[in-house]
Design a protein around this nucleic acid. Sequence first.
DNA 1: AACAGATGCTGATAATTATCATATTTTTGT
DNA 2: ACAAAAATATGATAATTATCAGCATCTGTT
Lengths: 229, 229
Amino acid sequence: MPLSKCNCEGCELKGLFFSELTNDEIEAVCTWKDERSYKKGEYILREGDPIKEFCYTKSGLVKLVRSVSDQEEQIIYFASSLDFISLLGIFSNDTYPYSVVAIEDTVVCSLRISEVKTFIRTNGNFAFSVIQKLNRVSDNIITTNLEIKRRRLPGRIAYILLYFANDIYKHTTFELPVSRKEIADFIGMTTENVIRTLSEFRRDGIIKISGKTIEIVDMDKLLKIKQFG
Amino acid sequence: MPLSKCNCEGCELKGLFFSELTNDEIEAVCTWKDERSYKKGEYILREGDPIKEFCYTKSGLVKLVRSVSDQEEQIIYFASSLDFISLLGIFSNDTYPYSVVAIEDTVVCSLRISEVKTFIRTNGNFAFSVIQKLNRVSDNIITTNLEIKRRRLPGRIAYILLYFANDIYKHTTFELPVSRKEIADFIGMTTENVIRTLSEFRRDGIIKISGKTIEIVDMDKLLKIKQFG
DNA sequence: AACAGATGCTGATAATTATCATATTTTTGT
DNA sequence: ACAAAAATATGATAATTATCAGCATCTGTT
């Protein structure tokens, strides 16, 4: 099969994820890869399911969640485009220790994990790039959690607002992709207190809120709250 | 140089870390490896230093810490024997994002990171085993932090007591290897409240304390506090 | 359009945790 | 061995956060 028929060839992510693969390997990937679109709210992976695929986001935004009791869940991380979403335990577990849910419309590309494992064993440069990327994502999660842990409620809210504004949307006005409850599940506080703190920020002229739309009005103050709150 | 002169050959960790290396590769490791002993309290790695080595503990206990302000530090993780202590960012950063400090006398074996990187590129099975092990350690850190985050003070203290009792010392009586302040830095609470909670556990007949020695008297109650507190 | 159910919002109160002050004990350095 | 510093301990109070209760608003469905 000629490579020109393989749409992975022209994929904008090829350079990011598979620059180290040979043409033959890319062709093999292409034959088996599975690209899927998910609507906001849909489950991409389910906690407890067997790990058969190696997935990454091509576009969109997802949350990694784990359930900690009947009613409660904890959000581990938000992954945007070009992130691995298969990470925790993918090479050391049999089943997913968390679920992945689209919080915006999301396109995911999946490879068979067995194939990726083979490439790791046979292609050292590919192995190295996988290690680098896994390492970067893990570090990110760990550091983010530590940063949140050391802050109080206002600091945590400031942190997450600035995360969406600076890292995800790169704009001071944006649509919050998550509910107040999801913020609460992420920062480890109650929904009521998340709402209360947002309202206080609004009253203090730091942000404007209309529904899901947030506008950061006083960036300096928000940065100070992130730093000291 | 005959392999018999190489003391890595007989190292009890060879099977764990380097089972996938060829004899030639092990000999190369052996020539350059650096095995060092550290007394309790000594720094093994310093935050900000360039990453030149790939380190793991042969025995002992260490803490991974990062400083978050002039006076405060955050403990990321406790690593016991056979753990990697080079992990966060080792393959994606130039400098260590955290320090590693011995909290018990510790023996560390270090390889040159450049050499490990070469093995990853040239020996796929070794690469795969490194990925598996890094993956496992990262997951552990992430999961531990999530478990702590979702608990209140008593639950957090119960969690860490049971961690030392069950995972590290495998005994209901043990010497706490860390100060109350270090526990506080790990679970994200104040030193006073850690002390207070330990005192309450003692008053409630859950544990006995004499200095650094802790004895778990009422395991059932402690498990319940871990679960619901 | 009407309804149900989720989500957002606010206040009052209770529970939890931090801060400050002070004393005692243990460890460290000389 | 001694003084100084650090760690442990406890109480009182302040600050922070959770819980509960009651409404309003939004969303999706029929």
